[in-house]
């Protein structure tokens, strides 16, 4: 049995809905958040897209690079957006000086977490649809050509993003604005080990060891295997899923611990 809290975790759907409504109402009015969701992914897509078109022309028209780079980019977006939106939901409450209103309401940190995961998923879905359409229209790349395997790939990558989101939210709870930069940069720290655009074998030995401990590396390896040989690496998918569960539990425990620590240190008061 996994114990996340000393008391049974009961989620009140009304409070979750309230938090989701609060952020969905303010989201379209925020240029910064719209840029995070659409502008930066578009720029990334265009740059990588044209690089791959160039490489494709030099490699005699092989679609391997287009599939590998654009597939990698679109799937990596799932990690980045899942993680960033979780961190930014908490930071947004702090920046708006609304965090005391939220945490003096009966909202629990688990309801807050469920709401942030839902919000991240809704926003991610919109970002992903936008990027899929652009990649399809401009580069004739269809991510759904990977087939049904895309679904477990997406779930594993989103779960990896949520684990990182819990860690970031925990750090913000404990250390406040000093560590807010991690909300945008933590995924970059694991990106080289995730082997998004190259195989794990291209990494130095010590990096390969780290890479094997990350669920993301199995997905990108699996994606390349699928592109090259149309084979599916079920074992890799299973390991990735297992690692995700482990990191999600550790992330949630860290966030819960950090919240209790913030209550002891008075850090939550300092956000107002």
């Amino acid at each position: 049995m996994i114990i996340l809290s000393r008391r049974p975790v009961i989620i009140n759907i009304h409070r979750v809905n309230a938090l989701i409504a609060r952020h969905l109402m303010s989201w379209p009015r925020s240029l910064e958040r719209l840029a995070d969701a659409f502008w930066w992914p578009t720029i990334n897509l265009l740059i990588w897209g044209f690089v791959t078109v160039y490489l494709q022309s030099r490699m005699g028209g092989s679609t391997f690079f287009v599939n590998m780079f654009l597939g990698g980019l679109l799937l990596w977006t799932l990690v980045v957006r899942s993680q960033e939106d979780m961190g930014i939901t908490l930071l947004q409450e702090a920046w708006d000086r609304n965090i005391l209103n939220m945490f003096t309401a009966p909202l629990t940190i688990w309801e807050f977490s469920v709401a942030t995961i839902c919000l991240a998923s809704i926003k991610l879905l919109l970002s992903f649809i936008w990027m899929f359409l652009l990649a399809w229209l401009i580069f004739s790349f269809n991510i759904f050509s990977f087939g049904w395997i895309l679904i477990p790939f997406a779930i594993v990558l989103m779960m990896a993003g949520w684990s990182l989101g819990f860690i970031i939210n925990g750090l913000i709870m404990q250390f406040g604005y000093r560590v807010q930069v991690f909300a945008w940069t933590l995924t970059l720290a694991i990106m080289p080990f995730s082997a998004v655009y190259y195989p794990v074998s291209a990494l130095p030995t010590w990096m390969q060891t780290v890479s094997r401990a990350l669920p993301t590396s199995y997905i990108f390896e699996g994606m390349r295997l699928g592109i090259q040989s149309h084979h599916l690496d079920f074992a890799g998918l299973g390991i990735a899923f297992g690692l995700d569960i482990l990191y999600l539990i550790l992330g949630m425990k860290f966030f819960s611990y950090s919240y209790r620590k913030a209550q002891k240190s008075g850090m939550i008061m300092k956000f107002s």
Binding site: H14, A18, A21, M25, D96, R97, A105, S272
Partner: peptide
């Protein structure tokens, strides 16, 4: 304490009525 910058007065109260 302030209210979220990008919510209207009505929306802010509605969120807490739901909460």
């Amino acid at each position: 304490v302030r209210a979220p910058w990008r919510l209207t007065a009505w929306e802010h109260l509605y969120v807490f009525a739901l909460m």
